[in-house]
Amino acid sequence: MPIAQNELEDLLRSAFPNGSISVRDLAGDGNHYAAEVVDESFRGKNRVQQQRAVYAALKGKMDGPSGELHALALTTRIPE
């Protein structure tokens, strides 16, 4: 089942309380989003580790067999 944009934002905000998070709905179907997470906790981590931390925040909502959140175009960055 799809996920609401604010639910996705809340999940990310609770995992990255000091981070800056922006979420864009790509298709209006609750299944295709783009998200950018900028957080100090990414410093010293490579891209895979950074994105793993974001996926962990989504607690299994990603691409599950029952087709939750199908597509998340994800960008992670360290604050300048």
Binding site: R52, Y55, M62, D63
Partner: peptide, 9 residues
């Protein structure tokens, strides 16, 4: 996904 600890394809 378990093998790589990565949820997407």
């Amino acid at each position: 996904k378990v093998f790589s600890d990565w949820p997407t394809i």
